[in-house]
């Protein structure tokens, strides 16, 4: 395939907010994840689990997109506000 500058940058960074145990395990309150066009919530979790194997210690992790619980097949865009939601324990 000929070199084409248009395709050089296929990814854009997505900032993911971390709370509770996920923040403690990763050691920071946000992480930047390279986002491939069309990437879904499930792809994000695959990436994060590879990057931070300690996340496997958490019982379950949901993902919120723009302050709503998202499904694994929800497509992400760089402007979304994305957060990991470990098991909640309010009250």
């Amino acid at each position: 395939m000929p070199f084409c500058p248009y395709f050089v940058d296929m990814t854009q960074p997505l900032t993911v907010l971390l709370f509770g145990i996920t923040r403690d395990l990763v050691g920071q309150s946000t992480v930047a994840v390279p986002l491939t066009k069309g990437a879904r919530v499930a792809d994000l979790m695959t990436h994060l689990n590879e990057q931070y194997p300690a996340l496997a210690n958490v019982k379950s992790i949901l993902v919120a997109v723009n302050s709503e619980y998202a499904e694994p097949d929800t497509v992400l865009t760089p402007s979304d506000e994305v957060a990991l939601i470990p098991p909640v324990s309010g009250g």
């Binding site: 145990i21 019982k59 470990p86 009250g91």
Partner: peptide, 24 residues
């Protein structure tokens, strides 16, 4: 609230700490 609201509590003991419900 205890099931769905994204609020977390960490219990602090004299000899450690734990995020409630977070680990198996």
């Amino acid at each position: 609230i205890k099931q769905t609201v994204p609020i977390w509590k960490k219990e602090r003991f004299t000899d450690g700490e734990v995020w409630v419900n977070a680990t198996p």
